[in-house]
Amino acid sequence: MAGPDDADSDERETNPVISGHDVVKEYVTGGETVRALRGIDFRVDPGEFVAIVGPSGSGKSTLLNMLGLLDVPTSGLVELNGLDVETFGDAERTRKRKETIGFVFQSFHLIPTLTAVENVEVPRLLDRTPRKTRDAATDLLERVGLGERLDHYPDELSGGQKQRVAIARALVNEPRLLLADEPTGNLDRDTGDQILAEFDEITDEGVAVVTVTHDDYVAQSADRVVNLIDGTVREDEEAVTG
């Protein structure tokens, strides 16, 4: 993630996974227009660990939604692997999400009727490769230390365990970009550390991780910190955490 003055650092060798230029997002509610993003530039490279910090209401989740192709900007250019996302229809965007992006939500959003391993399988259930999917899901759960909890339902898991299931789910499609909205928000420090360690490991494999956080220590372990204030990227290096 880069501020506007980073525009001339484009000569980096690798192509960004996703990049944005002069991205504006406005919400119209009851005749009033809220400018959640006021024209920001960003880029995320493979293997990067980026933390987005900023006060509540500054547009962090909005930005994450742009990165995750869950929403389109009001104006400006967002490019995924060099392709303008504006040109994608809903079906195409959905397909791109499946192919390249993994989500970890703040409140886990596990499906309560499915077991841990089934939850991890969810993004690939429709592929009709049950055996391969089951193997991949089992591997991932073992990797995040939940090999013993495969058949537990979400309400039988602790908060940290649920979040690790959510991370495994985000990784099951082998994404190039992992997006997390306050993944440690509900967790104690130790569990948060486990999750950070997991992110570290993922980035080593070339997956870009972008996480929104309020926690200083999460920001500190990031490669790069983007400080969002009131819909714009603050240039000073001091991170203002909420």
């Binding site: 995750g68 869950l70 809903d90 079906a91 959905t94 397909r95 999400r97 499946k98 192919e99 993994g102 989500f103 939500f105 959003h109 499906i111 309560p112 969810v122 993004p123 429709l126 789910r169 499609n173």
Partner: peptide, 16 residues
Amino acid sequence: REEIGVLRAVGYQKLD
């Protein structure tokens, strides 16, 4: 609602 939102987010099409 949320659950379906998750499914859509992880790549389920409307028709799915």
